[in-house]
Amino acid sequence: MKPATKALYVLCIFFALSMLGCSSDGPKVSAEINHSASLAGELVEALPRNPLQWKVITSEINQTDSTMSTMYGNDVAVECARTHSQHDYPAGAVLSLVTWTQWEDPRWFGARIPANVKSVEFVAIRTGPDGRPWYSYEKYEGTPLKKLSNQEGLNPNERAADLLSQRAAVMP
């Protein structure tokens, strides 16, 4: 190597060192799907419908149980929930509440995000044999999700009534 070239190298290295501020390390997170909280694959094979394919009606947090839930609805339910403050759902409406356990968000101190699917509930309204509304309630739990309870009748059970009474979250 010629001395002139060598000198240039030395100067370049010196310059590079004084520019340390330009290089940087990678952050400590990577781009991943939240698999444990997903409603996909074997876990949801027993579900009649995947509520994640529906629109959001509202959400809730149970700080005692450390769970968080999102309520979804099919188009009939969403249309009603967003325009009728009585939300007297017509026949054909189906609501679903998905509940997750929580963990701390590794990307934001101060946030909790869904960890594992805990349960999936459905409330469906049909027209009964005598023309009156007919309510059915189903609850799925476990891995994979299995039907735990299934009740139906002319009146919604207590849990179904509670879900039906929730008003839609304001989305202007």
């Binding site: 990678g26 997170v29 781009a31 991943e32 799907i33 409603l39 994640l52 934001w108």
Partner: peptide, 12 residues
């Protein structure tokens, strides 16, 4: 590393 997105998306 996550294309500047905070959300770890859920699938389904």
């Amino acid at each position: 590393n996550t294309n500047y997105v905070f959300t770890e998306p859920i699938r389904g």
